[in-house]
Design a protein around this nucleic acid. Structure first.
Lengths: 208, 208
DNA sequence: GAAAAACTTGACTGAATGGTCAAAATGTAG
DNA sequence: CTACATTTTGACCATTCAGTCAAGTTTTTC
């Protein structure tokens, strides 16, 4: 939670953190419109006016939570190393994304919900920061392909595919749990999923 | 739209169809909680009480739209032919799903939103009908693998991967448009995406 | 073409909910 | 310990919105 601390007073630091944590849970479950300030306040253990003392509008809470989680999600992407071994770099990236889906599914769902509804709060961010970052990494992948170290695939679609697959396990969790045989959803489940994805994806892009 | 016609009177058939069409647009854009009956009524060109004459509760409209679209999405899955060539069957399935994502993104988004929020309206369907169907198709894939006609991959994760990737192009459309270079989002765009996905996925599961 | 059935709607109600306010409680600095 | 700033909350307000109702209009039936 990036912007929760380093605030004016001690109490503000603490309470903003509590609020943002509660808000992430609520917003990711019910969406922006479906969540109420009362709900968040209750989960945060404070009165509604008190919560509004820290974040004057519902939207302020939402945007703050969203921005905080965006960074979490982009960090592994930033760390793809142009100097590393292509297959190994992508393996690391996919594994990290899967770990995130396992450990922070709420963040993934919050983000998915925002995009699904037209990204009203982060359209700008997508078109500038995110686009720049993706263009850069797509360039790296393209270079790898030119050097014959990856099969010739469209780098953008490869990136989308990795995002889609890894985040699916957080976003569509309910569906997956409904379908999979009960005993499959055990602690090692995410490891199995990661292995399967890696097997298919990496074999799909190894130079041939 | 399955349940829109074959109703009591002529007018009911017409108006239920109009309402469901409007509702799909509105619900898929704003989610259940974020949509208002007034919005749907306006888009359908009738008064709110009139709309409520056909569907007494907001939830009735929602559930009907959702059920109608579920069938659309499952039909191609049902058509995977155990007697066909594995790679060819999966190619056909993926291509069909991509066409659906291109032609009916609203349906995909409606479904994604429902799952994202815990599938309150279709949990039952997922655990019975859908699970049964997926188990069956997973069995088919497993047989193909045993016969050495596909690489040994977990059939469930393969299915999830196909769903995740193909539906991503409908659900995360805003993000994709924000990232891709403008001229890329042209009519042939979905064909390119399909080719890329097929290239990676099929190479990932061809017997080796 | 008249009676009945089906359809349509303006005006309304009650509950939910985002946000305000003023006063009380608590924390902090000197 | 006192004055000041910060934090907390009960009571309240305005708006939105799902759903009702009674009275009208149109369509169907015989």
């Amino acid at each position: 939670m990036a912007s929760s601390s380093n605030k004016r007073t001690r109490i503000q630091g603490i309470n903003r953190g509590i609020i943002l944590e509660a808000a992430l849970e609520v917003f990711s479950t019910y969406g922006f419109r479906g969540s109420t300030i009362d709900q968040i306040a209750e989960k945060a253990g404070m009165s509604k006016p008190n919560l509004l003392y820290y974040f004057p509008r519902k939207e302020d809470i939402y945007v703050t939570v969203l921005e905080d989680t965006l960074e979490d999600w982009l960090t592994p992407f930033r760390h793809i190393d142009p100097e590393g071994d292509p297959v190994e770099e992508l393996r690391k990236y996919i594994a990290l994304k899967m770990e995130l889906s396992a450990s922070k599914p709420e963040s993934s769902r919050l983000f998915a919900n925002e995009i699904l509804h037209g990204a009203p709060a982060i359209q700008d961010f997508l078109k500038t920061n995110l686009k720049r970052l993706v263009d850069e990494k797509a360039g790296v992948i393209l270079r790898w392909i030119d050097e014959g170290r990856l099969a010739p695939v469209d780098p953008y679609h490869l990136i989308f595919m990795i995002w889609a697959t890894t985040q699916h396990y957080a976003d569509f969790d309910v569906q997956i749990r409904a379908i999979l045989p009960e005993q499959t959803v055990r602690p090692a489940f995410f490891d199995d999923a990661t292995d399967s994805i890696l097997s298919i994806l990496l074999n799909g892009i190894k130079p041939r």
